[in-house]
């Protein structure tokens, strides 16, 4: 995930900004200070929400959406699951003196880093990125209208491709390591009440529509593969929690996971075949290529994140649904 908008309009900080800053600090304190896992988890969830608001306030809608979906939604699912499955497990409390040393060293390091980075940020005479003009001039060649989608899938498509590969490997690793996971003595909450199943079935269609909207709005407005994929993953997690049979998805997990990256590379190789550089989209089919890749990447991101979630669960699925069986 990257921040695309570096140049934020410098305006006077108001009361709202002060409140947001205080809220960030409070959320961090809730996440770090308590010793109970439940409290820490909720601190992180709160932090996700507050940081989303900060990004909105800074005018970066795309980053805010990504933060809401990933930092709030997905991380939330993971944290809540871990808290529910092992509320007490953790490091044995270290000696009090040692803890103090750690805290002091941590605070000193934090202050030094913050001061240095802050000083640099303020003293460097910020040059506006030299790519703002070329972006405007070359947007026509990309087949999309939204600047960020243009950057992600045309100008810097190579970075996006490698980032998607990073997620692919993270998901593949989660599936691999899952086979080594011991079964926990007591399976965490498996018996969802009927109200939760109900909620899952009502929420899922809404999440599906939101995800698709974010995907297709991405070519003209904020949104795109990463945000949409995260929302669709949330839908899968909600359905999984609601006890819906997802064996179809599990069977297609690996093909969906790699399709985006493979098709991206295949589309990229058309360039060298035609005597152009890698990842060159010809204007005639640029829109089709970008749209096709974005749809497949979204699917890959959704199941990739879902695989990371699955990797956390003990392997309690019937054998026909386990990942290694899927590939047969």
């Amino acid at each position: 995930m990257r921040t695309q908008r570096l140049g934020v309009g410098m305006t006077e900080a108001g009361l709202l900004d002060g409140l947001l800053a205080a809220a960030v600090l409070a959320a961090v304190a809730v996440a770090v200070l308590p010793r109970a896992r439940t409290a820490q988890s909720f601190g992180f969830l709160l932090l996700g929400v507050v940081v989303t608001l900060v990004w909105l306030r800074l005018g970066s809608v795309d980053v805010a959406l990504a933060e809401a979906a990933l930092g709030g939604g997905l991380l939330g699912a993971v944290l809540v699951y871990l808290t529910a499955s092992s509320p007490t497990a953790g490091q044995p409390p270290s000696a009090a003196a040692y803890r103090w040393v750690r805290a002091v060293v941590g605070i000193i390091c934090g202050v030094v880093v913050a001061v240095v980075v802050g000083a640099v940020w303020l003293r460097v005479e910020a040059t506006m990125p030299a790519w703002e003009e070329p972006v405007a001039a070359q947007m026509d060649a990309t087949g999309v209208e939204h600047g960020i989608t243009g950057v992600l899938l045309a100008f810097r498509a190579y970075d996006t491709l490698l980032e998607s590969a990073v997620l692919l490997f993270a998901a593949a690793t989660a599936l691999l390591l899952r086979q080594h996971r011991p079964r926990p003595a007591a399976l965490p909450v498996r018996s969802w009440g009927p109200s939760l199943q109900w909620t899952a079935r009502i929420t899922a269609p809404v999440l599906l529509m939101t995800g698709l909207w974010l995907l297709f709005a991405g070519s003209t407005d904020s949104g795109g593969a990463f945000q949409s994929g995260a929302v669709l993953c949330a839908m899968l997690i909600v359905l999984h929690a609601g006890g819906v049979d997802l064996s179809g998805v599990h069977r297609w997990l690996r093909p969906l996971l790699v399709a985006g990256v493979l098709v991206f590379i295949l589309a990229g190789v058309i360039g060298p075949v035609l005597g152009e550089p890698w990842l060159s989209w010809q204007p005639e089919w640029a829109f089709a290529a970008v749209l096709g890749i974005e749809v497949l990447l979204t699917a890959g991101i959704a199941v990739g994140l879902y695989a990371v979630f699955l990797g956390m669960l003990p392997e309690d699925l019937p054998s026909s649904q386990t990942p290694q069986e899927v590939s047969r």
């Binding site: 990125p129 030299a130 790519w131 070329p134 972006v135 070359q138 045309a154 100008f155 498509a157 190579y158 360039g271 152009e276 550089p277 890698w278 990842l279 060159s280 989209w281």
Partner: peptide, 8 residues
Amino acid sequence: LGGFDAPL
């Protein structure tokens, strides 16, 4: 890559 010159 893609025929887009740096810095873009």
